[in-house]
Design a protein around this nucleic acid. Structure first.
Ligand SMILES: [Mn+2]
Length: 572
DNA sequence: TCAAAGTTTATAT
DNA sequence: TAAACTTTGA
């Protein structure tokens, strides 16, 4: 929803641009918009969670655009959504319902054999899952694209980055489709960026400084602008009946104060003016001003903008609506894509039934007590996504595998070879944060986006693996001495029960082509160590990832890309 | 007549 | 999510 009708209202201030304008600069990306668009290129595959690489075409879409930016020497900073803000449930449930209805209808059409109708319905059933987000994160890591998972709304995180100087890791502009970013105070926002890099930009300072522009914001400051947005209706608070963007703007410019507008509105609207509207509006404005974000340098949560005195006077529990506080380690784990921000589970792709990792500082009960207009946060989400009927999937006709490769304007990353560094594994500092990966996922990734910069170590199969990852104060992890580079073929990368090796995909070498018939079988677990670009400082959290014996399925995990038979569920 | 509110469609290929 | 379009309301 964003801010109702805001972009239409702000049209005179929105100018066409080309992203080339930001060459050499850091630009933030609201990942959700590209994930959402990209999901349409493979909506059926995502809904059915089919095996194979077609499901990952949304990644291609995303990375294509990343490449576009990089082609123009822009430094993309991808920001993903984290936990849900304590609201949006009302509209969310409705949408979820509709999606499920569309999904059911699609499955029905599919059983009839009407693939065309089914695909259309699947498009209305897709939603961006955290699994997709995490998949993207893995690719971003392997491609050395800077990213950050916001503790809550990506919007707020982007606005925060927008407020920082370049030296502090700030960004010059944000690419998104969400008008909320203006309410959050983003300096420069680019909407509707197309595949060529053309888009429409709004620069907030131009709005406040403009003299002869249609909707005048002469006497507006950021707070009044944000208040106008809330009055017009936003995700946090529906507008008073009869009030839209136009009247919201008129009220604010006439009375120049949130309080006066509210009192006038109250007398004017009478019964239509909800009792708690005034306090709700103030809280909503506060969220846009002070939402909790992640401070990458301090490695802890922070407020988008320092709290005002009136907010500081409130007891801590009353500030939960800005996003519950998280311990630095949890916040960092979320930001770096190690932990699912919604379920708080470690991204351990071996166990189907994931084990919770760490609980947030504040209990859910506490949050419920804070009686704000916002509903209590849901950190635990029920897997109420539609289930897939295995039979139906099996019956499903094979989609014409029109593997259209989208090499458009910019080159895709090469299909590189796998370079494996052999040598004494114990010599290799194994002290970086790592991730356990499911074999099929890594197989899929290595098709297009390699494991560049990834240190992959294949461990022995083990029951109830108890892996702990930690990153002590060691400096840059470099696999330098005592290691040979050996080029291997992925198709030969069959399990080597017991041998540990570090491998790294190497860009410079050429010649490896992954064939459709590659069969990779890996037993045991895979550790991956990543290097981050900007935040290259090693992390210091340590997590225990218990993979109980649920991995029996995976132990004999045999992945055949051709056999595109499902592996349903394991979506949120 | 204008603004709000409601409905529908597109997002990718 | 936005936008385009239609309908409703004062
Ligand atoms: Mn938003």
């Amino acid at each position: 929803m964003g801010i109702k009708d805001l972009l239409r209202f702000m049209k005179p201030y929105i100018l066409p641009i080309h992203i080339q304008k930001y060459a050499g600069k850091r630009v933030g990306i609201d990942a959700y918009s590209w994930l959402h668009k990209g999901a349409y290129s493979c909506s059926m595959e995502l809904c059915l969670d089919t095996d194979g690489k077609k499901k990952l075409r949304y990644i291609d879409y995303f990375m294509h655009r990343i490449n576009l930016l990089q082609h123009y020497e822009i430094i993309p900073i991808v920001v993903l959504d984290g936990g849900h803000m304590p609201c949006k449930a009302a509209t969310g449930d409705e949408r979820q319902r509709k999606r499920k209805a569309n999904f059911d209808a699609a499955m029905a059409k599919l059983k009839e054999g009407n693939v065309g109708a089914a695909t259309e319905l699947f498009q209305r059933a897709v939603s961006v899952t955290s699994s997709m987000a995490h998949q993207l994160v893995e690719v971003l890591k392997s491609e050395n694209v800077e990213f950050i998972v916001a503790p809550y709304e990506a919007d707020a995180q982007l606005a925060y980055l927008s407020s920082l100087e370049l030296e502090q890791g700030g960004i010059a502009a944000v690419i998104t489709e969400d008008s909320d970013l203006l309410a959050y105070g983003c300096k420069a926002v680019i909407f509707k960026m197309d595949r060529y890099g053309k888009g429409e930009e709004l620069i907030l300072d131009n709005v406040f400084q403009a003299v002869d522009q249609k909707p005048s914001f002469q006497n507006f400051d950021q707070e009044l602008f944000t208040a106008m947005c809330v009055l017009a209706g936003c995700d946090f608070l529906p507008s008073v009946p009869g009030v839209g963007i136009s009247r919201a703007h008129a009220f604010i410019s006439k009375y120049q104060s949130v309080e006066r507008v509210l009192s006038v509105l109250k007398t004017k609207k009478g019964k239509l003016f909800p009792d708690n509207y005034s306090s709700s509006l103030v809280e909503a404005v506060s969220v846009f001003q002070h939402a909790r974000v992640y401070d990458f340098d301090a490695k802890k949560l922070k407020y988008l903008k320092p709290l005002s005195q009136s907010l500081l006077d409130l007891p801590v529990e009353q500030l939960e609506f800005l996003g519950p506080d998280l311990t630095p380690s949890v916040a960092a784990a979320i930001a770096e894509g190690k932990v699912d921000p919604i379920t708080m589970e470690a991204f351990n792709r071996f166990s189907v039934s994931k084990t919770p990792l760490k609980t947030p500082v504040r209990s859910f009960k506490e949050q419920e007590k804070s009686g704000s207009f916002l509903e209590r946060i849901e950190l635990k989400r029920t897997a109420d996504e539609a289930m897939i009927d295995p039979e139906a999937v099996l019956k499903e006709p094979k989609y014409s595998k029109q593997d259209l490769d989208l090499h458009k304007l910019v080159l895709q990353p090469n299909k590189d070879q796998m370079v494996i560094r052999t040598g004494n594994p114990s010599l290799i500092p194994n002290n970086n944060p790592f991730k356990i990966r499911k074999t099929d996922e890594m197989n899929m990734e290595s098709e297009e986006y390699g494991l560049q910069q990834l240190k992959v170590s294949f461990g022995t199969k083990s029951e109830g693996m108890d892996v702990s990852c930690s990153s002590p104060n060691s400096k840059e992890h470099d696999c330098s001495e005592g290691q040979k580079e050996v080029i291997i073929d992925l198709s030969k990368l069959v399990d080597d029960s017991g041998v540990k090796q570090d491998c790294e995909k190497n860009r410079e070498e050429e010649g490896f082509e992954s064939t459709e018939d590659d069969v990779v079988e890996i037993q045991g677990h895979v550790n991956i160590t990543t290097k981050r670009v900007r935040g290259a400082k090693p992390r210091t959290e340590s997590f225990k990832v218990k993979t109980s014996s649920t991995c029996s399925e995976n132990k004999k995990a045999k992945i055949n890309k051709k056999s595109s038979i499902l592996d349903f569920f394991h979506r949120l």
